[in-house]
Design a binder for these strands. Structure first.
Lengths: 185, 185
DNA sequence: GATAATTTTTGACCTAAATCAAAAAATGAA
DNA sequence: TTCATTTTTTGATTTAGGTCAAAAATTATC
């Protein structure tokens, strides 16, 4: 869904508001595997996934580890960069061909000033992110590899269709070999 | 620090604003070990820790597991209850004698309406929470028990002084026995 | 201060999952 | 369709950290 339609599905915009928002956002396309943001960037850009599938990742001891998967109709940005002016560990990569609509955090603030009811939408988006992080944390803290895979199957079966085994394994905090063995059980 | 002073350390309040805020908040004290909120509550109350030390916890297979530690001058509430009207897995317990200032989420919305510049403070508090969750997640995803303890020592040495070994161990996602062995290394 | 209750440490053993390595399968390119 | 590259599976081995149990130390209660 386009960003503007996503917003309009939550609140009513005047024509002028719509033009204002469009003037502050840019839409780009990426190919599968493209890096949208490198790790250690301090970019304060917020991305909305219009179409496709992406992931946040980081590199640790030479290993590529998936931090988060991102579906269409979701937002992503670096909390470290935007709120703490610090480089983020996490890069952003297209898992498949991608259409993104992006805007600067500072411009978001201008939009919220002009269209105050959008602030609540932003608040909800932050809450969604907290909930996802929190659920994921719960999943990993004391569950076996099998349990982790099971709840992935249950909650995000669609992700498994889009993504290589290695990316899922590191997301679940297990090795690729272990995940492979679990799947063939 | 008192909630009102915490707010005033970030922005200027008129006398009227201050009275308004005070009229919507309540301060209570708790003893070490007291349960402030039971797991599975749907309470939409936001707590500010004025003095003392607390933790979020949950129970899994009969085991008590620490989800998060909470220092003074921090806020805590259930994202599930407030934003998704769902019961939260997590309870809230005083790790030591506690003074809390509490207010309802709905009343926070009234405060933000009246004092719009407070909205940014709330936004920052949500961002802080995301950062903490995110850092904690990073810690647990692919680090050894030793590494987890080390970064705890480095980043939150104060927590270790306040809290029993078992509570710290479950927070780090390891058993109490393992943590004990690590400490005596 | 003695006893009870809780918390922490130590020990022996076991298991889930990591590591290393190589084969098989799938995907892509020429 | 063949060859090259990447991804997934399978196998053998190792190990970090879990489990169970009991002793020691600390803290709380009468």
């Amino acid at each position: 869904m386009e960003l503007i339609n996503y917003i309009k599905s939550h609140l009513t915009l005047t024509n002028d508001d719509e033009l204002f928002i469009n003037s502050m956002t840019q839409t780009e396309t990426y190919k599968k595997g493209d890096i949208i943001r490198e790790p250690y960037s301090k970019s304060k850009v917020i991305h909305f996934i219009h179409q496709g599938f992406a992931r946040n990742y980081y590199v640790k001891n030479g290993k590529d580890i998936t931090y988060f998967f991102l579906k269409d109709n979701s937002f992503t940005f670096s909390v470290d960069a935007v709120y703490f002016n610090a480089p983020t560990k996490y890069g952003l990569q297209a898992e498949e061909d991608l259409i993104l609509t992006s805007f600067k955090y500072d411009d978001l603030m201008k939009m919220l000033e002009r269209i105050p009811k959008m602030a609540h939408l932003y608040e909800i988006e932050m809450a969604k992110f907290i909930k996802q992080l929190s659920d994921k944390y719960y999943l990993i803290q004391f569950q076996s590899a099998q349990d982790r895979y099971n709840s992935m199957l249950e909650r995000y079966p669609d992700i498994l269709l889009h993504v290589s085994l290695g990316h899922v394994a590191s997301y679940l905090g297990i090795t690729q070999e272990t995940l492979s063995r679990i799947r063939t059980k």
